[in-house]
Computed example of a mutant assay.
Amino acid sequence: MTMDQYYLLGRSGLRVSRLALGTMNFGTGGFHAAYGKTAEEAAPIFHRYLEAGGNLIDTADFYTAGESETILGDLIAAAKVRDRVVLSTKYTYSVDPGDPNAGGNGRKHMIRALEASLRRLRTDHIDLFLLHTWDRITPVEEVMRTFDDLARAGKIRHAGLSDVPAWYAARAQTYAEAHALEPVVSLQLPYSLVHRGIELEHVAMGQQLGLGITAWSPLAGGLLSGKYHATDQGLGGEGRLSGAGGLGRTMTEHDRRVLEALESVAGELGVTMAQVALNWTATQPGIASAIAGASSVRQLDANLAALDFELPAELRARLDEASAVPVPQVYQMFAPGYQNWLINPGAKVGDKPAGYAPAVLNWVDGAEG
């Protein structure tokens, strides 16, 4: 259960571990208080992650109302590992409801948020500073020029985006390239066996433009943790998602197919459902790192063990088939199978150059691709 392989993050020289430590539950304040951990409870999780060779730590100013950053700052300082860790934090959400400029992606709030994060994290720079969520208002040019200013000032080492449309990320990167600004090297997005929407555009965009994807919620909010299974009544198991539409979630036919396939594959490999789900996400095309939190050292060790095996091709195919979703028609029009049939009928396609990443669209309902 060690991480001894590191991967370049996007088109950068920054090396990160395949599993990142999510710290949304470090702290007991704010929106995440219901399942937060005190500093004393978080410490052993933090230290075990470092002992295992992990180096990418993900937080945000919004997590537990800033407590996550404060706890991390204290832990990193006490362990004297600031240079070793790749520290990632995010900004966007409001820190003062009465101030219209205390939230969003604008220059004023970005600089204010970064300075506050630096104080809480007890450091003079952030290794990876991300826009947390697209605010639908701020011009992308303003965001990229501010990232560039902060990088030139030495306050951030790399810039990234989280939860933005693919066109927005593409616009940001091409604008930075055209004006010799600090590029974006990372794109943080939700991705799991039950949420594969980013495969339609984000994955290929990231591969083409040099953005390494860090996948959050690889266990789909706990649905793929192994606590739950499909039943005739819906979602069975003991956890916060089960019960009468637990946390507002209802079992879909897609969920059922995924859970049944996941349970089957885990049984054949002799590992847990969570480990299979984590392994699948972490080893998908374009994914630089999967972000996984932990409520205990035991759970962290189980997560780390997800890297100790390989998914055989036939079992991965079973998971891919079960988790496939219908592709919107516009994407079908330029999918490889359709193009071979209509544009190059009868043509034989040779081997692709080394490093070519195949399309990852999945077809369902008998369509061909």
Rank of each mutant, 00 (worst) to 15 (best):
V203W: 00
V297S: 08
R11V: 05
E253V: 12
D149V: 13
E321Q: 15
L150T: 08
S186V: 04
G104F: 03
A176P: 01
L200C: 04
L72W: 03
D61G: 15
V364W: 01
K155V: 06
Y93D: 10
L9T: 06
V95T: 15
E69Y: 03
N279V: 02
T23E: 05
E268Q: 14
Y63F: 10
T138G: 08
L181T: 08
G154K: 12
D124C: 08
M24H: 04
W341K: 12
R256G: 11
F31R: 15
L87D: 03
A294C: 08
L224E: 02
A347H: 15
A324T: 06
W363Y: 14
L87T: 01
T28K: 12
L300I: 08
A78R: 14
A113S: 14
A359C: 15
T214K: 02
L235N: 06
A292Q: 14
R112K: 14
T133G: 01
R157M: 11
F62W: 12
G234S: 11
G22R: 02
A151Q: 14
L304Y: 06
R48G: 01
A347I: 10
T214H: 06
V164D: 00
K227C: 09
G13S: 11
L114D: 05
L269R: 08
D124K: 10
L118N: 03
M251N: 09
M3A: 05
K352E: 12
D301F: 03
G36F: 05
I343H: 13
A367D: 15
G234Q: 05
L262F: 08
P183N: 04
A153M: 13
P139T: 04
L241I: 06
L181C: 07
G73S: 09
A292L: 09
Y356E: 09
G73P: 01
P285R: 08
T250P: 09
M333S: 11
G243C: 06
L361P: 09
H195L: 13
A313P: 11
D308K: 13
G54C: 00
Y168W: 15
R82I: 04
G13V: 03
L181K: 00
L278G: 03
G53M: 00
V325L: 15
Y331M: 06
L87F: 01
P218S: 02
